[in-house]
Every structure is written in C-alpha cells, then in structure tokens.
Design a binder for these strands. Structure first.
Lengths: 202, 202
DNA sequence: AGGATTAATGACTTATAGGTCAGTAAGTAT
DNA sequence: ATACTTACTGACCTATAAGTCATTAATCCT
C-alpha cells in the first residue's frame, strides 16, 4: 500500500545531479556549495552523490564539461554552408549568438573557471581547446572567407578574432558583477560589430 | 644576549598583513587560502591576525580596498590639464595605462571579486563606484573634450566608453585563465584604439 | 513468490580551518 | 631597577563539511 520511498534510476541520476550542481554552483560558487546541498536539490541522499562521483572535485569537472556546448560546432558548420553575404551573416546569426552568451550557462562556467581554474588546470585546458580555440578559429575562418570573396579587405582583424569576442567577455563579466547597474549589452555588441565592419569592408 | 623573539610594530602590521594576504589570495584565491598561511607570510602568529582583523572576511575586504588605486584620479586630472591633442593623449598615456592593467593588482582584484563578489555585494558596490564608474566617466569626458575641440565627431562612442575597456577586460581574463596560451594583448589594445579613433576622427 | 542483486540511504568518522584566550615578553614610564 | 601596559604567541576549542559504510529496500530474475 505504502508508496516506495525512492525509485532506482541509475540512468538519469548523473544528469540530474550535474544539473542540480550547476544551479547550486551558479548561485553560490563551487567552494561555498556543500555536497549535501546539491544532493538536496537533486532529491537524493548525500551518500548517493559519492556513488556517481568519487569526489566533489570530480563532480565539479563533470559540471563544467556538461556545458561544453555544441553550438560552437553548429556555428562553424553554418559558416561554410550559408548563402548569406559575410556581412549579413555577421550582423545576423553571429551577432545573435553573441548576444545570447551573457545569459547562457557559458557565463556561469566562465565564472567558475575564473574562481577555481588555478586548481584545475586540465579543466582550463579542456575549455580552451573545445570552446575558446574553436570559437576564435570559426571567426577567423569567417573573416577569411569574406576576404576570399572580395567582401572584406585584408587587415589586422583577420588574425585578431578577439576583437569580436571582447565585448562579449565584458558583457559576461558585467552581468556577473554589476547586474544591478545594468547597461545595454546588445547595443554595445552591435556598435563593436559596426566598428569592425566599417573598417574591413571593401 | 638573546635577540628578542619578536618586535612590537603596531603601526606597520596592518599593511604587512594585507600585503601578505594579497599575495596569498593572488596565488590561491580567497577560499583556498588559510588565515594561518597569511600569518606565516606576514611573519606573525595566527592569533595576531585576529587582533587586527576580526574575521577572515574583514581581512578580505581590507585587501580589496587596499588596491583601489588613485591612478584613476590621476588620469582624470591629466585629462583636464594636458596640452596634447585628444588623439595623442589616447594613443599615449591612456593606451599605456590600459596596457599595464593585466599585470597589475587590479587584475587580481577582478578575479577575487568575480569569485567572491556574490557574498560581498557591498564590496562590489564599493569597487563599482570608486573604480569602474569613475574610469568610465574619465573616458567619456575625454571623448567629449575631443568633440568640443572639433577633433572628434559625435557618435555612439561618446556614451559607450565600454568600447575602450572591453579589450582590457578580455586581456585580464585571458591572463588569469590562459597565460599558458599567451597572445599579444598590447597589439590587441592598439588595434581596438585604432578602430575607435578611425571611426570618430573628423 | 522468494531469492539475488545493487541502487539508495543516513548515521557516522575524520580532517580541516576559523576563531579564542590564558599566558608571555617587548617596550615604557617612574 | 621595578612595576606596568599591551603587542604578540601558540596551544586549544569547535563548527563545518567532505567522505565512508553498514544497512535497507526497490527491482530483476527464475
């Protein structure tokens, strides 16, 4: 008659736990979050946590890796496949993509990496290779394509994709620290894109 | 005969302790740094720490506030007093100032604020008002002066001083996370300044 | 149904680090 | 010199949170 006190759901637990951990870390950071608190959010006991993740550190790494979005790859593919002009592509999909980042899980991961990165260099490497490096390469490729097509002229921008990323990073940090004193990050990114395009258009 | 085991130096202790704490926090972050470790670096006992700072948290706040550089004010004054053209001033003193930030204590404080800021909102406010807000105001003033003198034309840049700051922030974050994969932050900042000036020059 | 398997629990152990305080000795005044 | 003040020490206390494990019960299998 009595309902079972719990269900055994081996398949789903890891995801549920990392999702709960993500939320908890997002609110309080890694160091200030207790494993027991994550367990509570995930609706499991503390002991179970250690059945799926050997240590709190391993849980942390799992959380960070779970946010390695495939969106980056998606964007790269779109670059090659699109019919749009390079300028239209940058002002459209690329800009939209940029605008979404400050409110995305990526912002949380950036904060976690800045906080704890010193102690987990392999995790930083992982993120650099899978997100940063590929993202920059995608932008570089996009600009190069524009040059090949005669839409853009060669310039310093070609090997400084960071120019596109800078306003995104500032917006992320701003959101993390000063969400109270908000400013228009969308317009900010648009303006930067304008600056760059004005400079490189033929 | 025997040398005294310690000296009583009430005047100097606070500074020495915050300096030691700054170094320790810079290396390991706030949460991972033990009060005893700071005491060791400062060459004092753990007990003495609590004579000058009631809690670890208070020590943290003292460290952050100790880095509120007056350089910002110095820069503001220079803006008003200089004989240089606005462009020369930006390409000279302003750019030099920007280039120095990623290697300065400010970078450490930014990391600390990102890590622990959620728990110390008053500290974040303090930094916003004393550094961020004033810094942005100084840049805005500089651009406005250029417009008044007819050197610059009015544009979106006037009320987006963040455009100057973005490459600095990216460089700081890059230094914190990816110092292993270094890139030329100086050239990066120069290029951004070039972009902006090209756009706004009359 | 009943036995076997193992996901899941939660009370327990233990290490760590923040914080305290009774005692000590460096400096000062008389 | 001697008495006095107080900066300073370091052993100690204690709360917290990571990690363990004997036990329980949900599910599977025949």
């Amino acid at each position: 008659m009595s309902e079972p006190r719990y269900q055994r759901r081996k398949q789903d637990r890891p995801q549920e736990i990392t999702a709960a951990a993500f939320d908890a870390f997002a609110e309080n950071g890694y160091a200030a979050t207790r494993v027991e608190e994550v367990a509570r959010r995930a609706g499991v006991s503390k002991g179970l946590m250690y059945l799926y993740f050997k240590t709190k550190e391993e849980l942390f790494k799992a959380v960070v890796k779970s946010v390695v979005v495939r969106r980056v790859d998606a964007l790269i593919d779109t670059v090659e496949g699109t019919e749009m002009s390079s300028e239209a592509f940058i002002r459209g999909p690329v800009l939209d993509f940029m605008k979404r980042i400050p409110d995305s899980p990526v912002a949380v991961v950036i904060r976690l990496l800045i906080s704890e990165g010193q102690r987990y260099p392999d995790l930083v490497d992982y993120y650099y290779e899978n997100v940063v490096s590929r993202g920059l390469a995608a932008i570089t490729r996009l600009v190069e394509r524009g040059v090949e097509r005669g839409e853009f002229k060669p310039s310093a921008v070609t090997d400084l994709p960071h120019l596109f990323v800078a306003p995104v990073v500032l917006s992320v940090i701003w959101r993390i620290l000063f969400s109270k004193n908000s400013f228009d990050t969308d317009r900010f990114m648009e303006t930067q894109i304008n600056l760059i395009l004005t400079q490189i258009k033929t």
